[in-house]
């Protein structure tokens, strides 16, 4: 966990200090993409000889889908709780939380649906969710177990948080993370639109 916080913190300080030329913004985007592909490729290689990684999926069968479904229900319930104690409406909280960590899509989607400020709020909330996941995943895995660790990442459990998930579980949670991340990602446009338009 220290390495994660240090890497992220060093990056923030470096960016904030102005040492990184802002003209290289495009380069930074490509750097993020390439790092993500290297990370995912490496996780795939690690997984190749990790027999225990597929045992869980095999033994669970179709029940593997309970994990993303439970995680989505929990996220939305948590958002509903926030709506009770804040000036935000239930509709806004549910629409924002149903980004499940996918900040780029949820922000753009809400902006396009007609509420740019809610889109910005969704962006910020889901960036925070990703950072919270990266920082807290290790102890969540130790205290609450594998499913909880996968659930924390939401849609990011198949990309940015997959590497951390693989490290803390020794590769065991990678297939579950991918299944959960894909299902979360497929559901984001549906839930965001549903809550924003019809609630």
């Amino acid at each position: 966990m220290i390495g994660i916080v240090l890497s992220l913190g060093a990056g923030i300080l470096f960016g904030f200090s102005g040492l990184f030329p802002s003209a290289f913004g495009g380069f930074l985007e490509r750097w993020i993409d390439v790092s993500l592909y290297v990370l995912v490729f490496g996780v795939g290689m690690e997984l190749a000889w990790e027999s225990k990684a597929f045992e869980e999926i095999r033994s669970l069968g179709f029940r593997v889908f309970f994990l993303p479904l439970a995680a989505m229900a929990g996220s939305l319930l948590g958002a509903a709780f926030v709506a009770l104690c804040s000036p935000m409406t239930l509709r806004e909280c549910l629409a924002v939380a149903s980004g499940f960590g996918w900040y780029s899509l949820s922000g753009v989607l809400l902006a396009r649906l007609g509420n740019p400020s809610l889109g910005l709020f969704a962006f910020a909330t889901n960036v925070f969710r990703e950072i919270l996941t990266l920082v807290n995943l290790e102890w969540v895995y130790r205290v609450f177990g594998g499913w909880a660790a996968v659930a924390l990442g939401g849609a990011t459990s198949m990309d940015t948080t997959l590497g951390v998930l693989s490290r803390v579980s020794g590769g065991k949670l990678v297939p579950l993370g991918v299944v959960s991340g894909v299902l979360h990602s497929l559901c984001v446009p549906f839930w965001v639109t549903l809550f924003f338009r019809f609630l």
């Binding site: 994660i4 890497s7 060093a10 750097w31 693989s166």
Partner: peptide, 22 residues
């Protein structure tokens, strides 16, 4: 695999941090 995923993770987090800070 472990080396690649570690290097990828460190670079990814650093780049994400740079973007957030910049």
């Amino acid at each position: 695999g472990k080396t690649l995923s570690t290097v990828g993770l460190v670079f990814l987090l650093f780049a994400m941090g740079v973007r957030l800070g910049q």
